[in-house]
Design a protein around this nucleic acid. Structure first.
Length: 283
DNA sequence: AGATCGGCCTGGACGC
DNA sequence: TGCGTCCAGGCCGATC
């Protein structure tokens, strides 16, 4: 399930390949979560940024291509990465023209055209073309918290927000409001590291600072390993991330806690599987 | 207004 | 073998 490190790994491979290129055409299956995709045709990609789990493609003409990988979304270039061929799960296809070529109906349509496929088995992914920065209808993106690896993510403000919230700390993290890009895997990992019970509704300053640190560490380390692959997540070059072997909480229920040896417990919290150490992370 | 819950979507794991 | 059931979970809209 792509979270910040996975999306960042995709951005690093995709960005240089898209920058400066024309989108000559777009085709897509009708999807509930696709919006105005055809408006991207004839526009040039000026850059590819990431905010939380969102990829933001800056297009000329004041447009923006917003992409969210959902649970199973991935981008692949046609014919690359061991001869990738589209299958029934390719939901959208972008045909790209040269950096130098003028945009138009034929640009990039000839032999050697670069074709980018968006594959998404479970259709939880989002693709939308909007006026730049206009996130009406993308409520999570519009209210997205600070980037965890930037100076905008401040431990004092983080603690103040946590103190104001009356939610359990884990579902609160997953709202994307206190910090952008933390999903189920890295929430469990960070809470384990900071020794905080995922059900906790009150967290002291010391512990909240530990959580602030843990979030940054867990995400940075996962980026270095190019993300966590269980089954679906792949980078643009088709390779898996290498972080799965380093998880100490998520998916480890029943195994001995690395700190104290207690069997890790799995519960459902806010509708999501949650694994924690009932001893180290006691309330 | 903030918190909570159900729906979306599909393949794979599992039980009988 | 084959069928049915359950699970994974990010985001969004409805409801409390």
């Amino acid at each position: 399930m792509p979270e910040l490190p996975e999306v960042e790994s995709v951005r690093r491979q995709l960005g240089p390949r898209l920058q400066g290129r024309w989108i000559s055409s777009v085709s897509a299956q009708p999807q509930l979560r696709f919006r105005a995709l055809e408006r991207a045709a004839g526009h040039r990609v000026l850059g590819l940024r990431r905010r939380g789990k969102y990829l933001l493609g800056e297009l000329d003409g004041g447009l923006e291509l917003v992409a969210h990988l959902g649970m199973t979304g991935s981008f692949r270039f046609r014919g690359e990465a061991d001869g990738w061929r589209p299958d029934a799960y390719v939901r959208a296809t972008f045909t790209l023209g040269d950096s130098s070529a003028a945009p138009g109906p034929h640009a990039g349509a000839g032999l050697g055209a670069t074709v980018l496929d968006f594959r998404d088995v479970r259709r939880f992914g989002t693709l939308a073309v909007v006026p730049a920065g206009d996130y009406r209808g993308l409520v999570t993106l519009a209210a997205l918290g600070p980037e965890p690896l930037s100076d905008d993510f401040d431990p004092v403000r983080f603690h103040a927000a946590l103190a104001r919230s009356r939610m359990a700390v884990k579902p609160w993290l997953l709202t994307q409001r206190p910090v952008a890009g933390v999903g189920n895997i890295y929430a469990d990992e960070a809470l384990w590291r900071a020794r905080i019970n995922p059900h906790a509704r009150r967290v002291g300053r010391e512990r909240s600072t530990a959580l602030w640190t843990a979030i940054r560490e867990v995400l940075s380390e996962a980026i270095e390993r190019e993300g966590t692959t269980f089954r679906d997540y792949r980078m643009v070059n088709g390779e898996s991330g290498r972080n799965a072997d380093f998880l100490v909480a998520y998916g480890q229920a029943g195994r001995a806690c690395r700190r104290c040896g207690t069997a890790l417990r799995k519960v459902v919290l806010g509708g999501r599987g949650t694994t924690y150490c009932p001893w180290c992370q006691r309330r």
